[in-house]
Simulated assay, not measured.
Amino acid sequence: MSTIPVKMPNQRYDVVIEDGLLKTLGDRVRQVWSPRKVAIITDDNVGPLYLDQVANELTESGFTVVTVVVPHGEHSKSLAQLEELAQQLAAASFNRTDSLLALGGGVVGDLTGLLASVYMRGIDFIQVPTSLLAQVDSSVGGKTAVDVAQVKNLLGTFYQPDLVLIDPQTLKTLPQRDLVEGYGEVVKAGALVGGDFWSLILQINSPATILQEAAKLIHFALDFKVEVTSQDEREGGQRQLLNFGHTIGHGVESLANGDLRHGEAVSLGLIAISTIFADQDETHEVLEKLRDRLEVVGLPVTSPLLADDGLMDKIKNDKKNRHGYLNVVYLNAIGQPQIEKISLADLADKINRAAI
Rank of each mutant, 00 (worst) to 15 (best):
E282I: 07
N56L: 09
P35Q: 13
D318Q: 01
L114T: 02
S34W: 03
I166E: 06
P5G: 10
V228S: 10
Y119D: 11
I4E: 11
N257C: 05
Q169R: 07
N10A: 10
L202D: 13
A333K: 07
Q150I: 02
K316D: 02
Q231L: 06
A348P: 00
L163H: 07
G47E: 08
A355K: 15
A333G: 13
V6I: 14
D14A: 11
S34T: 14
V151T: 15
I356M: 02
Y50E: 03
L294M: 06
R353W: 07
E288Q: 12
Q160H: 12
G194Y: 02
K319R: 14
G62V: 10
Q212K: 14
N153D: 05
D43P: 06
L222K: 02
T67A: 15
P35A: 04
F224K: 09
T173S: 14
S2A: 12
A86V: 01
D318T: 00
N10H: 04
V329S: 01
E74P: 01
A90R: 09
G113N: 06
G298S: 05
L111G: 04
L192F: 09
V228L: 12
P207M: 08
K314E: 10
M1H: 05
G245P: 00
L200M: 15
Q280D: 11
G113S: 13
K188N: 04
F125Q: 03
T275R: 15
I339T: 14
V252Y: 12
D124G: 11
G324V: 00
G156Y: 06
Q127D: 07
T283D: 12
N45W: 08
E18H: 10
S61W: 02
T42Y: 04
P337G: 02
V164S: 00
I315K: 05
N321E: 00
T97S: 15
K216Y: 01
V65A: 00
K188T: 05
G310K: 13
V193C: 00
E181W: 01
V16H: 03
L133C: 03
G324C: 14
A149P: 01
L21R: 09
V29N: 03
L255I: 09
I204E: 07
Q11F: 03
G104R: 09
H75P: 01
G190A: 12
G298N: 08
E181T: 12
K143P: 06
N45V: 00
P168H: 08
T67S: 10
L255E: 08
L192E: 01
S199Q: 12
T112N: 08
I166G: 06
I334M: 05
R261M: 04
L326D: 00
V180Q: 04
E57K: 08
S199L: 01
G194D: 13
D137Y: 06
I210D: 03
L200E: 13
V151A: 04
K23Q: 15
A189D: 09
F158T: 03
D124K: 10
K143Q: 10
D279Y: 10
L25A: 15
I342D: 07
N352L: 08
V6H: 09
L222C: 10
D124E: 12
I334W: 02
T275V: 11
N56Q: 11
G73V: 14
I273T: 12
L85W: 06
H323R: 07
Y119V: 04
P304N: 01
R36H: 00
L290K: 03
Y325S: 01
Q231T: 05
G335V: 03
R28G: 02
A90Q: 12
L202T: 15
N321M: 04
D98M: 12
D19Q: 10
R234I: 07
